[in-house]
Design a protein around this nucleic acid. Structure first.
Lengths: 345, 345
DNA sequence: TTTTTTATTGCAATCGATTGAAATTTGCCT
DNA sequence: AGGCAAATTTCAATCGATTGCAATAAAAAA
């Protein structure tokens, strides 16, 4: 009465690698095993239980590649970080990495896996198309537009399941999630001016759209309120930034009394250089950052900044992407940033 | 004389999705196309050029799933972050995210893709085995042992291509890359004592092996040099940590004069609480961190800390993993940490 | 010209799971 | 017992690229 597998419950003799092996042991066909493991109601409850038991005993795992190939979907979402203008940028940028952490959680919760790719568009013109059409991913999240706006636009025309983190441009065709950077810039400038500053500087490269929009917002307000503002390009690697900021401050610190840093990371460097030069914050110089990274609350003095809700951003990216995977045409999601007043302005 | 594809160079009529479509157009067999695209020398140069041209014109991308299935290797490395003791830990921990960034670069450089998975071992006993045996990855990097040391050990017995970031225990069987945490702990304590501290506190949960080893190293030195040391458990989410540290300092700041923070992140919180309480650093309280995150140089005063070379760590992880993929049995890589003296001790 | 080599290409099986359609078994009713 | 519907299971094709072996064509040697 003993069936083969009963004679050797934890049998090391036959490694059960494929669904066919398992089928042989269970005495059914491969198709039935497949259906049983998928919980398909076509298969008899007793048969299913038996198959499940054998699968457990031999701790069998169906090969995902085969499954994905056959079903023409992978259950994998591609996450790609284009390193356009500044190759070192996002490595050191806590913001992107934190966003990535949240994305991993959101996607996992929805049953998707995450394939991460960092690309250098200058070296690989074809970075986005290649990834999308590799057959490895069901959809793609692009983290940061970098200087690849046009390429992303082109792809968006023929490929639905793509959502981008970045800035929204009037009339753009790709679906984007991001903070309203221009509004954020306005909030920052308003705060600086409200704190008494009248001669402002914007610290950050205005090349990337996000930063350009932040600067533009600050300009809106400065113009309206009769304050001056100038952009001071900096790089995003901390040591270079530090030197650049130091040089700027040494030359100009009599000229300006308020700084809007394009990101908290830049603001941290700035804070340090100010301290080195003995310029009191906020008494002699007001400072506002952007992002509200966790450490922003930990600097001395704690940084006044513009908060982007990273967790909400990740949630939005995933939510929109899943809807697009379902064939829906979704609108972009622009989240309002929030001024967090601490002690630097 | 015109071959079919010449009549319609950017032909939108027939979408060339498979190698077979392409073969039809080129007038050869699928096998030849496959070989041509792989650069196999068996195929005639002229034929290859023709096939390559057609592939380019129709911008054809071979399906990776099919390829991976057939070749039984995926070109994908799994990176898994077990969230064992503190679910929120690594999200907020810059260290892990930075490591991840470097891993992405190293793997890309070697032609591998990266599949990221964050798992909660309590909810999924089978997290590691399931990932490994999914057929989706050629090898796996485990980022942080968390409290899963035993499970990792079990897997290591039967699965070669796995390398773990973490702490090295005497006689362990899995291949690990990490800093010599115990040595790091010694360096930290030595520095604190050399700066004049004699009553030390270790801030951090001693549950995870890495932290336990750091504490043990500090104890070694304290005992030898006649200083006292006590461990103060803290959590890793910044706000909780802040409160815990504040409570501790309020109760004990007369009792201790040197703090060894288990990570820079903890040190930052600590620095802030000290400032709030008006305790001067380093005059009244010495402080040493661990990691040397980029911002460690930016705090006020700049943080004295123990450096782990993250880029080197990522390089080591990938290098060892690739050698294991090649069948080699590799030893663990323990990197010496380095004391970075700044101004807090 | 015939025989050998060598260079290319085609054929067909394969990777392992999935699924529509066909075949078989079981259950139910008269 | 006979007949029909419902429940299960099997069969075989399929996803798309790869690769060992056989087949053919071209070149070289005799």
């Amino acid at each position: 009465m003993a069936t083969p597998e009963d004679q050797d419950p934890d049998c090391a003799t036959a490694p059960v690698r494929t669904i066919a092996d398992l089928a042989k042991i269970a005495g059914v066909s491969a198709g039935t095993v497949s259906r049983a493991l998928a919980g398909n109601s076509l298969v008899n409850a007793r048969t299913r239980e038996k198959i499940e038991r054998i699968a457990r005993e031999h701790d069998f795992r169906p090969n995902q590649m085969a499954s994905k190939l056959r079903r023409q979907k992978t259950g994998v979402i591609g996450v790609v970080i284009p390193l356009g203008h500044d190759r070192q940028q996002q490595i050191s940028d806590t913001f992107f990495m934190t966003l990535l952490g949240h994305l991993a959680d959101e996607l996992t919760a929805k049953g998707y896996d995450l394939m991460l790719r960092r690309v250098i568009p200058q070296q690989d013109k074809d970075w986005l198309d290649r990834f999308i059409r590799s057959g490895m991913i069901d959809g793609v999240l692009v983290i940061g537009q970098s200087n690849q706006f046009e390429r992303i636009e082109e792809i968006a025309d023929g490929y639905l399941p793509m959502v981008v983190w970045g800035n929204h441009q009037e009339g753009q065709r790709h679906c984007v999630v991001g903070a309203d950077n221009r509004l954020g810039g306005r909030l920052a400038a308003e705060r600086l001016i409200a704190s008494g500053a009248t001669r402002l500087a914007f610290l950050g490269d205005t090349g990337p759209f996000e930063f350009a929009a932040r600067f533009a917002g600050a300009q809106d307000v400065a113009t309206r309120m009769g304050a001056s503002i100038e952009a001071v390009p900096t790089h995003l690697t901390p040591d270079r930034t530090g030197r650049e900021i130091a040089a700027f401050l040494a030359d100009n610190h009599g000229e300006i009394d308020g700084i809007f840093a394009a990101s908290d990371t830049i603001a941290f460097s700035c804070l340090r250089e100010l301290q080195k030069l003995g310029i009191a914050v906020p008494e002699q110089m007001k400072l506002v950052g952007f992002d509200d990274l966790p450490i922003a609350a930990q600097t001395l003095p704690p940084l006044t900044t513009i908060r982007q809700d990273i967790a909400a951003g990740a949630h939005g990216l995933v939510d929109l992407l899943l809807r697009r995977l379902n064939g829906e045409e979704t609108e972009s999601l622009i989240m309002p940033p929030r001024l967090i007043i601490r002690e630097t302005a």
